[in-house]
Amino acid sequence: MTNVRAAGKAHRTERLALIVLRGASGFFIVSIALLIGYLAVEGTKLFTVDHKSIFEFLFSPTFAPDQGHIGALAFILGSLFVTAFAIAVGGPFGVAVGVFFAELAPKRVASAMKPAIEVLVGIPSVVYGWLGLTLLVPLIRNTTGSTGFGLLAAGIVLSLMILPTVVSLSEDAMRVVPDSLREGSLALGATRWETIWRVLLPAASSGIGVAVILGIARAIGETLAIQLVLGNAPVIPAGLLSPASALTSEIVMDMGGAAQGSLLQHSLFSMAFLLLLIAMGLIVLVKLVARKAA
């Protein structure tokens, strides 16, 4: 009798647990759906309520919402430039360090150096920005005679910030390459470097592609680290050393002073929605790359 009752109770617990677990999982779906929904509504008011043209938003360099100009091209280009810089520098560097951890580093060296990479992930972006502001900007100012603020400073800071992402994901990608390929190449008389360069990297290419894409995702959304060193001039940057703005830095700068329902506020939400679309696009890209690999 007690056995039957115990079994019944266990069964009920089981059912209840499943409901709770399923609910928690569903929370993720609801959250992302709400997020996309809210930003889609607020982010398109510029076009639906204010009747501005998407074309102007995307391709006009003039941003002066109080005079009716809502061109975000300067911010879009600013974001693209700093991200490209970060990937061009931090990408290869990160892959190289990831390869080092997966293929070269003796165990003891790896376990001594890995925590450093984890600390790099943990440092708040505002602290990176502060470092850039107090260390990098004066350094650039003194060596080049510019203000020090601009794409170069932001690009360097971002390169460093995406490094841990690229390092750990490309290390993972190298580790899943089967040992038999390593042995096969070495047994043919290849050196370790030839094995890495000609066999392992191509075999890990889709994983490394994912590492780089997620590095891009991290870079394009980064806000405070670059806002502190970009100089925040809402113009198309003339060069690496001239002040610039990015989508994220513009949002964080002006949102606080944007009146409810104003053209400025709507423009900023449109920029946020654009950032969200880019992020989603990158995630879809990751899926495609991963599927192609499988």
């Binding site: 959250s31 930003l39 959304g221 806000t223 964080v252 950032l275 992020a279």
Partner: peptide, 13 residues
């Protein structure tokens, strides 16, 4: 997708 949302965008949400 949530993991890739930039934190400033999450802030606006």
């Amino acid at each position: 997708s949530l993991a890739t949302v930039p934190s400033i965008v999450m802030g606006l949400f």
